[in-house]
Design a protein around this nucleic acid. Sequence first.
DNA 1: ATGTCCACCTGCTGGC
DNA 2: TGCCAGCAGGTGGACA
Length: 270
Amino acid sequence: MPELPEVETTVRGLRPVLEGQRIVRAQVRRPDLRRPFPEDLGQRLTGATVTALGRRAKYGLVDTDRGDTMVFHLGMSGHWRIDPAELRPHDHLVIETGAGRRLALNDARRFGSVELWPTASLADYPPFRGLGPEPLGPDFNADSLAAALRGRTASIKAMLLDQRIVAGLGNIYAVEALYHARISPKRAAGTVSRKRLARLVEAVHRVLDAAIAAGGSTVRTYARPDGELGHFALELAVYGREGEPCGCGGTVRRYVEGGRSTFWCPKCQR
DNA sequence: ATGTCCACCTGCTGGC
DNA sequence: TGCCAGCAGGTGGACA
């Protein structure tokens, strides 16, 4: 699931359940995702009060009154379940609040991670070092993008997936943004004109905003039993549409780059 | 430094 | 119906 919009949706869904609440129980059921959980994760969470929730790139942030932030990444298959009726396989971490709410972090493929890090020095959290600008923030714009891509010969698609260039895009939204900007995913990043980079920045904004808006509509129903955060049905223009017609009269094609499927229309994306 | 590929892990789907 | 190859939205490390 989780690119930036899914993580943002997840954080927004967790906020009303966790913010201001005391964690009365934190149960680790399987401590080894991509990286092992901190040894004492359960003890360090139990009794803490959650002061704020946030997001950086594709990471969710849960601040506590003990000066620690729980940083979680959902990998490929991770998601939080709110008030599950019963626990399921791959519910690796279960948190209960003083208000009687229960959260389960489920991640079948275990590419995700959970870490505790001092809130005051989150910038030093190793995965955050070297991270590029937030795609919806002011530091991601045509000028900064042009500077970051100058002279680069790798494909523009690969550069959008590089979290050091821009932090939060994944395969789906990189593909969708390039389609909307009418830029070929195969084009060498350093050869994309400033004018077309401006179009790309705008397309990234449009695609992410629409996805977050669609996720938001799902969040409103989060309280349903076994509600799972971050899942929503957004209409995608090209992703997963190999062989289907493009509005321009062309046909959507697929190729693999770096082991990732890329969908595009060779007729209108140049 | 840069570009490219692959491993990590489990579950689901579609074709035979 | 059953089996199995192929595929899945991320990241980081190895290699040239």
